[in-house]
Write a protein that binds this DNA or RNA. Structure first.
Length: 595
DNA sequence: AGCGCGGGCGCG
DNA sequence: AAAGCGCGCCCGCGCT
């Protein structure tokens, strides 16, 4: 049996000046990997918790320093000439070390093994422990259990576990050792193939940290007033549903199906587990149906209205008040590499899925005094990227023409396809848009038509014409899938790579999804690029949250016009693709709602 | 009481 | 030939 790479690792706890000096001598040694960095804190609050233990390590040694030695740790880091590596160091350790210990490690000197792991394979669990167990030593995470059990048994928290409790300091000291081992394994798999993607992630990371710390101010009295209005309404509907139909849950498929049956309507569709489907679409269909009895229509629409009220309160407004910090703001967590395509995600709360049409929810956010919101979003970014990657001269020209004349892109396509002027309002234009997006998603004709709300017979000629006039619409997916098949026959995981080298694998039986991964992943990178460009233009401190193709800003009122120009300039990109990436900014002075 | 899952629904 | 992509959060439901 091969010896563990961790055999012979020595772990040290700094408890004296001699220990600290020994650590300093060790840190000054030459080594081939970056210096591993890790910290333990009193908790997970970025703004309030403080550092308790600072750990440094390389492949052979791990050192843990209690915070009374923080000065020495910072001195070692300041003087260190090489690079550092940490796991999730950009989002966690670096900001804590900066705020708590007063040292901001230069971002270009930092490697993050979590980023490396995500770039090597976005589908795999990215925690230090699972990665270490898988890539270094099956038992690498064994200490974690020991520490968890010990903390539970002694009723210790991360704030109170004694520094010299061996499972605490020793497994703390092991973490930077694991990180350097991970670096040695993962970096060669990124270096040379995805350097540009990696550098982009490193550049974006501190900017996302700034956004989380800044947060969005909540209009509390507004939120409370809306909540009581909506809850009152919901309660009245619920009590009617209960007394008239015995329904006590707005989501119970059984109860709702039974009540509708009593009112004379049978639900046709089922979920994949066989229960009757009671979605908005199904109930909405009944509520609008001329054939359905009045009672069933009333019942369906009542359920939907109550559900909507519940959603607005439960998922959004009430959650905002619960998550609100003592500074009156909400500090979402922005996760840089959670999605398989390289998109960022957001939680606590998710500010990327606030209702767009119902103005109530976004209205709960107000710019700080003497500030205004500016929202700047890319225009048809995924389609522009699709056109560029397809190299279809007609599509590229259509975008050029649309931009030059200020015409809607899909109206340009529809005008070309139908040989007659088509307006932005026309259903023809809507069908062309649906068919175009279906290409990006890899949808078939049936789904395409259903989404557009027309029959497959109506959609087919539009879809065929689109493929004929713009052959790149067929050839790009064709090329991607042909390459994916070739990968499969070589025994590789089928995948695409974006222009930065980002590796995007798909499930073996869903090759068609690669078309979307490439467009979505490239667009995700374009937003990350835009974030760095905005920062380079000097507006780093005004960004609040990224929303896939949009950045929300909070800008001093006195500089709105000027900064709006800077933002548009920074987010416009005529270089990266053969179709310009354009954007559109709007100013909101009162709330996060466009007037 | 807590966990995981499916269904449902909000966004790009 | 046929294939809609990516998320997070809430609830109901069945399980331990």
């Amino acid at each position: 049996m091969a010896e563990s790479p961790l055999a012979g690792v020595e772990l040290h706890l700094v408890q004296s000046l001699d220990d600290a000096l020994a650590m300093k001598r060790w840190a000054g040694e030459r080594r081939e990997t970056p210096l591993g960095v890790d910290i333990e804190t009193t908790g997970l609050d970025r703004l309030r918790d403080r550092v308790r233990l600072i750990q440094l390590g390389d492949k052979r040694h791990g050192w843990a320093m209690p915070d009374i030695w923080a000065g020495a740790a910072v001195e070692i880091m300041r003087e260190y000439e090489g690079e550092f590596a940490g796991h999730n160091i950009f989002a966690f350790d670096r900001p804590h070390i900066a705020r708590s210990l007063g040292y901001e490690i230069p971002w270009h000197k930092i490697h993050d093994t979590m980023f490396l792991a995500a770039l090597v394979n976005p589908l795999v669990p990215k925690g230090l422990k699972p990665l270490s167990s898988r890539l270094i030593d099956r038992n690498a995470a064994a200490g974690q259990r020991l520490l968890d059990d010990g903390m539970k048994a002694n009723k210790w928290t991360w704030a109170t576990v004694p520094y010299d409790y061996p499972p605490f300091w020793s497994y703390g000291a092991l973490d930077p050792v694991l990180t350097t081992h991970l670096f040695e394994i993962l970096y060669p798999q990124v270096h040379g193939s995805a350097d540009e993607a990696y550098d982009l992630e490193r550049a974006v990371a501190p900017l996302l940290g700034g956004m989380m710390d800044r947060g969005l101010l909540v209009d509390q009295s507004y939120a409370r007033a809306k909540i009581s209005e909506l809850r009152e309404y919901e309660v009245s509907v619920r009590s009617w549903l209960k007394s008239a139909y015995g329904i006590d849950s707005l989501m119970s498929a059984r109860q709702i199906a039974a009540a509708l049956a009593a009112a004379g309507v049978e639900i046709a569709g089922t979920t994949k587990t066989g229960l009757p489907s009671v979605t908005k679409e199904v109930l909405g269909g009944i509520s609008k149906s001329q054939d359905a009895p009045e009672a069933a229509r009333e019942l369906s629409s009542a359920i939907l209205r109550a559900r909507h009220a519940d959603k607005i309160c439960g998922t959004y407004l009430e959650s905002f008040l619960e998550l609100m910090d003592s500074d009156g703001a909400i500090h979402p967590s922005i996760n840089q590499l959670a999605a398989r395509t390289g998109r960022m995600t957001c939680n606590s709360p998710n500010l990327q899925n606030l209702p767009r049409d119902d103005r109530v929810v976004r209205g709960a956010f107000r710019p700080r005094s003497e500030f205004a919101y500016i929202s700047c979003d890319f225009s048809q970014v995924e389609m522009r990227i699709f056109a560029s990657l397809s190299e279809d001269a007609g599509l590229i020209e259509a975008f050029r023409h649309a931009d030059e004349t200020g015409t809607d892109f899909y109206a340009v396509l529809a005008t070309e396809l139908f040989g007659e002027p088509v307006s932005k309002k026309s259903p023809k234009r809507q069908n062309v848009k649906s068919a175009s997006y279906a290409r990006i998603f890899g949808a078939g004709l049936a789904k395409m038509a259903a989404t557009a709300g027309v029959s497959p017979e109506q959609m087919k000629p539009v879809n065929d014409a689109l493929g004929q006039r713009y052959p790149g619409m067929n050839s790009l997916p064709g090329r991607i899938i042909a390459q994916a098949r070739a990968m499969q026959s070589r025994g590789e995981q089928p995948h695409v790579r974006t222009s930065t080298g980002r590796y995007l694998p798909c499930d073996p039986d869903r090759l068609f999804s690669l078309v979307n991964y490439l467009c979505q992943g490239s667009a995700a990178e374009q937003l990350k690029r835009a974030i760095t460009n905005v920062a380079s233009a000097g507006l780093a401190e005004y960004m609040l949250v990224p929303v896939h193709d949009e950045i929300l800003f909070e800008i001093p009122l006195s500089q709105v016009d000027e900064m709006k120009r800077v933002i548009v300039e920074a987010m416009t990109d005529n270089e990266t693709f053969s179709v310009p990436i354009t954007c559109d900014a709007s100013v909101m002075t009162e709330r996060w709602v466009k007037s």
